[in-house]
Design a protein around this nucleic acid. Structure first.
Lengths: 192, 192, 192, 192
DNA sequence: TATGAATGAGAGTTCATTCAT
DNA sequence: AATGAATGAACTCTCATTCAT
């Protein structure tokens, strides 16, 4: 995964720094230092700090969208596809903790135009998840809950994951995903 | 709601602006304009922008902590107390959307010392919730799930709420709380 | 020496603070804190920070001038009067270390008008010293050195004293004055 | 003296302005105006106003220290070396009136860390002078006076020089140095 | 006499971005 | 492709002073 590509190197450095220090607290100088360029030189590869943020988020989202799209069209019972969607969501956060942290935390820092672009990509994802949920309700495998609210609640629970997930923690990502699926699908209360 | 108290007025303006534009994107000038003072004059009432952020968060958290503490010690079955805790959490976000948004979104912008202070207040809350969960497991009313993970997941789902809650939306806060409780307690899948 | 007089109390606090932290680094708030008033209230007693500085310097200088004037007209051999002048100069610094430090160190911070006022009082002092020296040369008790230069050199040596004098030091002010007189009157080299 | 080196140009402007108006009364804007830059642009060359002050003082002191070190180890009678030390000290002030004025006048404005650094360089100088004096006492060429006090007195007399030396004055630096040496070595009183 | 809210100018510093080389 | 000097606006914060109460 050698950095043949300066642009990618810059992006990688930005992801690391934005995650560590936050978008606003990271200066172009910090990024330049990290890749061994002068800060003026960065502008041969990127057009602005804001664009850098957007393209990181975009990359994160397009991976997400395509993965969810695949899952949706798998030849499996919908309950299992919904489960896979939750697992993939969590694994996506774990695998790209930097990018996802930035997406989930710094979205509000985007300029209005960019906010719209990213917002619509993000809505697509939510919409796909919601559709899957709706499909589950239709098939009877999933309880008849409001699909929009359910989507928000389930994804909210999953999104918060970036705040405490520790790659070096006791439990691996698969075990954590098992836990989330168990809790979200069966609930916390004892069945009578 | 007359401005008898300038300090409170400043804090209110800060909450509104921090929520709208984010902490970093809000300048002291913005706040000064909002309350009709020169920016230098703000410093009669606050000691720094950072302190302003902290005191907003502190106010949010101390309300939260005391409410949860009350609920924990109520004379009710633990399952109902846990349910109340979820409802109170959501209602707390809805009632203080500004303060809570700032707390949930801008925590990472705090200085290390402040991060520690706010972090420990926040941990107390999580700990109380976790204890309640543990109590439920002990009594058999709640399934035997890892209490720490369950707390993170449930509160994560609830915290995400600030991102989409709209006070003028179709559903009131009580109905939304009903929904969360239903989903988190019973799960999404159909019981066989 | 109870503070029956607020003005004097303010001046005393200013002397202490200006000496400790310097004129520019001392704020009106610092002074107000030291005397237990609000900073706005200071302006009932003084007209400006600059004036405060000037009146401190003025007080220092008028003491100095009157003392030197007395010495000059004493009925003693001129050599002894010159010696007394040196001793009085040093004792004046030791006794009013605060005021003198401020005068010697912060003169350049004065506004042009004030600089002129203080400058002329200060010149009067130097002139008196120079006249005394000239008298000594005329009487033959003092070597025929340029009186203006000699005055500058001798007073320079004495003025630097404020930089290192320590009231709690090993040697008392009289012993130190003995030393200065010895060095300045007899020189450092061994007489052949 | 073309402006090949902006850093040096900034330092020169700072020396001039700090001397004229004092450190505190000189703003970064003043310096920027003097060198024809925006004030923000100064920070390409310096790291802070405080650092600028320190590096000016440091430059002054290291010249001084190396010159005195040379003199000390010359192959001359100690009385002559001490005399040379006085002459070099005065010439140093005359040649670098700006830098030395700033060092002698603004030392107390330094931050504690910087004060320590500059203070120790300054002590080294005083120590070398004192050692030379001590050597003179040992050889019998110099009277048996307390070397520490004698150093303070002699250097005090010389340091005050910056307050009144005028490069365009009647007497040149060599003549003035002759005067100082005469006064300090032989004293002011007539030998009986 | 004393307050304390308010001013308004200005401080030093940071920073994303540009552009001639 | 890369530099690095320069910009210029914005930033948080300080401070001596004023004045209605």
């Amino acid at each position: 995964m050698a950095a043949t590509n300066k642009q990618a190197e810059i992006e990688a450095a930005a992801i690391r720094l934005f995650r560590q220090k936050g978008y606003h607290a990271t200066s172009m100088q910090d990024i330049a230092d990290a890749v061994g360029l002068q800060k003026g030189s960065l502008y041969h590869y990127i057009s602005s700090k804001d664009d850098l943020l957007v393209s990181i988020m975009h990359a994160a989202l397009s991976k997400y969208n395509s993965r969810l799209s695949e899952i949706r069209s798998m030849d499996l019972p919908v309950r299992e596809r919904l489960e896979l969607a939750v697992r993939a969501h969590l694994r996506g956060i774990a695998d790209n903790l930097g990018m996802l942290t930035i997406f989930l935390r710094e979205s509000y820092a985007l300029s209005p135009q960019h906010k719209e672009i990213i917002g619509s990509e993000s809505s697509r994802y939510n919409q796909m998840f919601e559709d899957l949920f709706r499909e589950g309700v239709a098939s009877g495998e999933i309880r008849d809950l409001d699909p929009k609210l359910a989507t928000r609640t389930m994804l909210g629970a999953c999104n918060w994951f970036y705040r405490w997930y520790n790659p070096e923690g006791r439990l691996g990502i698969d075990q954590l995903a098992d836990f989330f699926v168990d809790l979200l699908f069966k609930g916390v209360e004892t069945r009578s």
